[in-house]
């Protein structure tokens, strides 16, 4: 148990499990997990903001930037290498995030939520008007290559899954390190009392801006992977309902556990996929009931399950 407390060991174990799962999972499930992980990365960025008491309803902005970078780079310059595309997507999202982060860091609550939402809707509107980029119909994205390796069919799905898993484990480990660090703990304290943090000598504004940039980078990364996995990007990536879905995953998972974010994301995809198939006319209802149950029974998110178990162990 103490071994699992060390972040690198837990990450290595999680990665080994994911790799093994990759060889057992059927194709469709592998794709589902890849997509859930990509969206989970974006939600993890929101979780980072949530720890400081902010919720962004506009992460679709960065998700969309990442996705369009992956699509346009492949179409314009012929770059299909997933490592390079991820780097470019992250840089683009990070750059935009660095511009807006310090501006938005002054706002709280509904003002922050609405401003972030409006930024993403500006991108949606702009992309919808740009017929050269396919307008509202979007454009197709070429399949990615992996350092010169260009798989097709199941190997492509597997390669994408392994790449995404590696990123998820790496990012998860880093974020845990961040959350446990002084900066991460300050974010939690900001949630409780901003004024006190300022008196302690830390800058609330800087902390918020940094969290925002981190969320932007994760949004871009999730967007690159989603765009490449789906093979199509459209302005819908930046629409408020997409952003709302990320917020939902973040709320579903809570900010207590990082693996919970990805489990929550997979759970949502599974429930949606099966309800869509078995109740084609009422799938939204099934999804709604599921969400309602989670919120009523686990108000602090899925992550609170692990926390309770840990507490129970410590008491015993």
């Amino acid at each position: 148990m103490t071994l699992l407390r060390s972040v690198p060991a837990a990450s290595a174990l999680a990665f080994a499990a994911l790799v093994l799962a990759g060889f057992v999972l059927p194709d469709w499930a592998m794709f589902l997990v890849t997509m859930a992980f990509a969206k989970g990365l974006v939600a993890l960025g929101i979780v980072g903001l949530m720890r400081g008491g902010l919720v962004s309803f506009g992460q679709g902005l960065y998700f969309c930037i990442g996705a369009y970078v992956s699509g346009l780079m492949a179409n314009w310059t012929g770059i299909t290498d997933i490592f390079l595309l991820s780097l470019l997507g992250v840089l683009a999202a990070g750059a935009i995030g660095t511009i807006f982060g310090p501006l938005l860091a002054n706002y709280r609550g509904i003002f922050f939520a609405m401003l972030s939402l409006s930024l993403s809707m500006i991108l949606y509107g702009a992309l919808s008007k740009m017929t050269t980029l396919g307008g509202t119909d979007g454009l197709n994205v070429a399949a990615p290559t992996f350092l010169g390796y260009a798989p097709e069919g199941r190997p492509l799905g597997l390669a994408l899954y392994l790449y995404t898993s590696a990123i998820v484990v790496l990012v998860g480990g880093l974020m845990r390190g961040l959350f446990n660090s002084q900066r991460g703990l300050i974010a939690l304290a900001i949630r409780d009392n901003e004024l006190r943090i300022e008196y302690l000598g830390a800058s609330v504004r800087t902390a918020m801006a940094i969290n925002y940039v981190i969320a932007a980078v994760l949004g871009g990364l999730g967007g690159v992977i989603s765009g490449l996995a789906i093979g199509h990007v459209d302005p819908e990536f930046s629409f408020w309902t997409t952003s709302g879905e990320f917020v939902f995953v973040a709320i579903l998972s809570g900010y207590l556990s990082i693996p919970a974010v990805f489990v929550g994301s997979i759970l949502l995809e599974v429930v949606r996929s099966f309800s869509n198939l078995y109740f084609p006319n009422t799938w939204q209802l099934a999804l709604g009931i599921f969400l309602l149950l989670v919120i009523v029974l686990l108000p602090r998110g899925l992550g609170s399950l692990t926390l309770r178990r840990r507490k129970a162990k410590e008491q015993a």
């Binding site: 469709w28 794709f31 589902l32 199509h232 459209d234 997409t242």
Partner: peptide, 11 residues
Amino acid sequence: GATKQVQEFRN
């Protein structure tokens, strides 16, 4: 949306 439809098509 298209994202969901690609997933459902694979399913």
